[in-house]
Each structure stands twice: as C-alpha cells, then as structure tokens.
Design a protein around this nucleic acid. Structure first.
Lengths: 180, 180
DNA sequence: CCTACCTATGCAACTGGTTGCAGTGCACCT
DNA sequence: AGGTGCACTGCAACCAGTTGCATAGGTAGG
C-alpha cells in the first residue's frame, strides 16, 4: 500500500509524468521500492480519482504528449496521515533461503553456485550504491533535512547489500568445507 | 513462485497436513518465506493437480479429519529442476525507506519514532533467531548436510536483522543530531 | 457455565504486482 | 533503406498474496 505514498513523496519533491516517475523509480526510490511503468500509470489514475494528484497535459512535438502530475492539498494531507500511521516491519522473503534448505536434495555444489551468482549480483548492486553515495554525498556529516534523509535511505541499501554479501561468503565457505 | 518449492522442501523433510505445514511455516521456513494457511491449502490443491504431491485422508476422533500430503516422484523431479534453475535475487522493499524519504514533510521526530518502533520489532525477532540458533545449533562448527543448511539459513536471518537494527540506530542518531 | 482458543479445512472477494502486447514518431547507426 | 532504441501512454490477462468469513467439536481457564 506504499506505492501511492512513494509516488506522493517523489511528486512532492518534483512534479512529473508517469514515464518520468518510472525512470526515477529505476534510478533511486525503486532501489527500495521497485515499480514498473504499468503499475505507476494505473496507480496515478487511481490517485487522481481519489483527488490526491491532478495532471496537466503537455503537448510536445517530436514525441508523445505527456501528463504532468502534481500533488494536491488532499494528496499532501494523505501523505501526512500516512507518515503518522505506523505500519508493520517488512519481512524477509528470499528464494535463496528456500534453495539452501533444499540443498541436500540435489547435486553437491549446485546450490553453492547459485549462492555465488547471487553474491555477484548483490556485490554489483553494492558497488552501484557506494558509487552513488560517493558522488552525491561526499560529505555525509554535513547533511541536513531532505538530503540527510535521502542519504540515510541509501545507507540502508548499502548495509543490506553488505550484509547479504557477507552472508553469501559465510555460506559458500561452509558449503565448501562440508563437501570435503 | 517459490511457495510451491518451499512446501516441497518442507514435505520432503517430513510429510504433513496443510495445517501442520502452516504451523511449520510460522515456526521456521516462514521466517524466510511467510505463508498463511489459506495460501498453503490453495497451493497444495494446485500441486496435487500437477501431480507433485498426493494425500491420504486420516480420520481422527475429537478433531477434524486431516489430509496428509507427501511428495511424489514428479514432485521430487520438479524440486530438482527448480533447485538447478537460477532465479533473480530478491529485492529490498520496505516502506520505512519511503517514510524516511518523506520525513521532512511532517513533524520532526515523527518518522524517528516509527524507526524506533521498527528497531524494537526487528530487535525482538533477532533475539528470537538467536535463541533458536543457541538452542538448536549449539555447536555450529560440527554441522553437516541438512542441519548445516538449516543453520545457514538461520544465520541469514540473524545477519539481516542485525544489519537492520544497526541501520535503525544510525538513522535514529542522525535524525536526533539533525534536529538540534 | 461461558468464553476463548486449538485443530482442521475451505470459499469468496479483493488488492497488488507482473507480463505481454500495441501504437506513434523521432533519432541514431549501419 | 532498415533496424534498434527511446519517449510516452495505455489495455487485458494473469498470478500471488491478503482478509474476512464459515464450520465443527475438543480442551482449558475464569
């Protein structure tokens, strides 16, 4: 139920079209709340019906018209309401855990390879996050307000990936030793 | 798409009814792949149609009849196939990140309180996991095969919760300092 | 005695998210 | 000239997961 609110946060920072939102999600919020353009379009329409956003059509030449959405007063109110409402902590859900539990039901080494694959992908994402942190927030101690919040979210991504990679290493190591 | 496979893993370890599976999910696999009894019943029926499991009805007195499911040869084959198929790494999806990004749009301290709440819940879960690890796996260095795999999954949960709690502390600290 | 919870299964309605497809026109590369 | 890819919107079908409810007898506690 937070996609609406993720969109409200993003549109509050800066108005934009569904397409632009999808790009933004790909590049930043989406690292922590993924969404496809389909979903964004659908939710935007629903949000407009609820009166949380309104759009103005912009004709462009050379490329399709676009609809720029901006947050209404009702949308701001809804966002405040949501920010003040506690919600349940997110749960872990990773098929790699299931595979690991079933590891002894297949060829030795097979699941280890899968763990290695995941490790590599998470390490790549970690590097991506670290790059963003380095480029966009070179002096984290000086940050305040919105910039600080954005940085802290990124820190969450970095920590999550770091710990995932470390876990993969522990698993790979243990599986290697177990086989010998 | 892994619920089927989580069930296959669990039923391979030991046959059981839908209800029992739901209990087991609550107590162990479900920490890493949550599922309600509704979903389990529905998926079990689908799996039986696919020929992956079959059930035998057990009449009980005093309590309702139950259907004990066990994995068929086709189910074992499907599980092997799945174990050998790579899948995409799980993505982070936590509304707390969205709230943090919107923190400056509301009263100072409000989002910090929510982070504190989440910290407390994750810390509780961490203690739960540590307790299980301590009780069920007192000598981790000696583990092999299935026990080792189960332990490693638990380690993943412990690491994830540890890193989440540490992140919360970082966030709480930074938000406190920012306000002054 | 009454309430509340446990075992055990299940239906129905809904919400959220994914996948595949479709159309338009420009820009770039070969 | 032809293909790929980007910008921009959207429909339709599907899959996965959640929530609320129903049924039914047993056991434990106030």
């Amino acid at each position: 139920m937070a996609l609406e609110h993720a969109i409200l946060v993003s549109l509050t920072e800066r108005a934009g079209s569904g397409y632009e939102l999808a790009r933004r999600f790909d590049r930043s919020i989406g690292y922590f709340w993924p969404a496809t353009h389909q979903q964004i379009y659908r939710v935007l329409r629903r949000m407009e019906e609820a009166g949380w956003v309104k759009h103005t059509e912009i004709a462009q030449d050379g490329r399709p018209d676009k609809k720029i959405y901006r947050v209404s007063a009702a949308g701001r109110a809804e966002l405040s309401r949501w920010l003040a409402t506690p919600d349940d902590p997110a749960v872990l859900r990773d098929s790699l855990g299931v595979k690991l539990r079933g590891a002894s039901l297949t060829a030795p080494g097979l699941v280890r390879q899968e763990v290695e694959r995941h490790r590599a992908e998470h390490a790549t994402r970690l590097e991506l996050y670290r790059g963003i942190a380095h480029r966009d927030f070179p002096k984290p101690a000086k940050l305040h307000g919105r910039d600080l919040h954005q940085y802290l979210v990124l820190r969450g991504g970095i920590r999550a990936e770091e710990s995932f990679v470390a876990w993969c290493d522990e698993v790979i190591d243990a599986l290697r030793k177990d086989k010998s």
